Simulated assay, not measured.
Amino acid sequence: MTADDPLGRLDDDDYPAYTMGRAAEMIGTTPGFLRALGEARLITPLRSDGGHRRYSRYQLRIAARARELVDQGTPIEAACRIIALEDQLEEAQRINAEYRRASGEPESPATD
Rank of each mutant, 00 (worst) to 15 (best):
E91C: 05
N96Q: 13
P16D: 15
P6T: 06
A3T: 15
I76E: 07
I27Y: 00
N96G: 08
R22N: 07
T2W: 13
Q59F: 03
D12T: 10
S108H: 13
S48T: 15
G32I: 04
C80H: 03
R9E: 12
R57D: 13
P109V: 12
M1I: 03
D112P: 01
D14I: 03
G8E: 14
F33S: 03
T29C: 10
A78W: 01
R67N: 10
D11C: 08
M26Q: 06
R22A: 15
R94G: 13
D11M: 09
T30A: 06
A97T: 06
E77D: 12
R101V: 11
G28P: 00
E25R: 12
P6V: 12
Y18L: 13
T30L: 08
L69R: 03
D11F: 12
I83S: 05
E105L: 13
A3F: 12
R100I: 06
A66D: 04
A79H: 01
A97K: 08
Q93Y: 08
Q88Y: 06
G28C: 07
L89V: 09
P106H: 08
I95V: 14
T29E: 07
M1Y: 10
G50C: 07
E86V: 01
D5E: 11
A23L: 10
E91I: 12
I95D: 11
Q88N: 08
I27S: 04
R53M: 04
Q72T: 02
P16W: 06
T30S: 14
Q88I: 08
T111G: 14
R57K: 10
D71Y: 00
A78H: 09
M1N: 07
T2D: 12
R65G: 01
R100E: 11
A102T: 04
D112L: 13
E91L: 15
N96T: 13
R101A: 11
T30Y: 05
R41V: 03
S48H: 03
S56H: 00
P106S: 14
R65A: 09
A40M: 02
T111E: 14
E91D: 09
I27A: 02
D5I: 13
D71M: 01
D14R: 06
D49E: 14
S103P: 00
E107W: 04
S108L: 15
R35W: 03
A79G: 05
R41E: 10
